[in-house]
Simulated scan of single mutants.
Amino acid sequence: MTPSIKKLQNKSLSETVGDELVRLIASGALKSGQRLNEVQLAESFGVSRGRTASRPS
């Protein structure tokens, strides 16, 4: 029997980081409205800092 494997999604790194931030807020690990330190977050995610752009609505 083959184990249940979740399909991979083709997402950009910025989308992946954004999704993870949403997950952290939803789980309570980050508080809604909490100030975030961009340098610390980038280091935690293992990514470099980059331009920030808002997502289209």
Rank of each mutant, 00 (worst) to 15 (best):
T2A: 15
K6G: 01
S4V: 13
G50T: 11
S57V: 01
G46Q: 07
E38Y: 03
N37D: 15
N37H: 08
N37Y: 09
G33M: 00
R49V: 11
K11R: 13
E38K: 06
T16V: 10
A26H: 03
R51Y: 12
K7H: 01
A29G: 06
L30H: 07
K11A: 06
Q34P: 03
L41F: 00
L30I: 15
T52K: 08
L21F: 09
M1C: 14
Q40C: 02
F45T: 05
L8A: 05
A29K: 15
V17C: 10
P3N: 07
I5G: 02
P56Q: 10
T52V: 10
I5L: 11
Q34L: 06
L30T: 02
P56S: 12
T16L: 14
K6L: 09
A53F: 11
T52R: 08
L21P: 07
V22W: 01
K31L: 07
K6D: 04
S48V: 12
S44Y: 12
R55D: 14
Q9P: 00
E43P: 00
P56W: 01
V47Q: 06
Q9A: 09
L41I: 07
S27A: 14
L30D: 06
V39D: 07
R23C: 01
T16E: 08
K7Y: 00
E38Q: 02
V47T: 13
N37C: 04
R23V: 00
Q40Y: 02
P3Y: 11
F45W: 05
Q34I: 01
I25C: 07
A53M: 13
R55N: 09
P56F: 00
R23P: 00
L13N: 10
G18E: 03
V39C: 01
K7A: 03
L24M: 14
L13T: 10
I25D: 02
A29Q: 15
A42F: 04
P56D: 03
E20Q: 10
V22M: 10
S44G: 13
E43R: 12
G28Q: 05
R51F: 09
V47D: 05
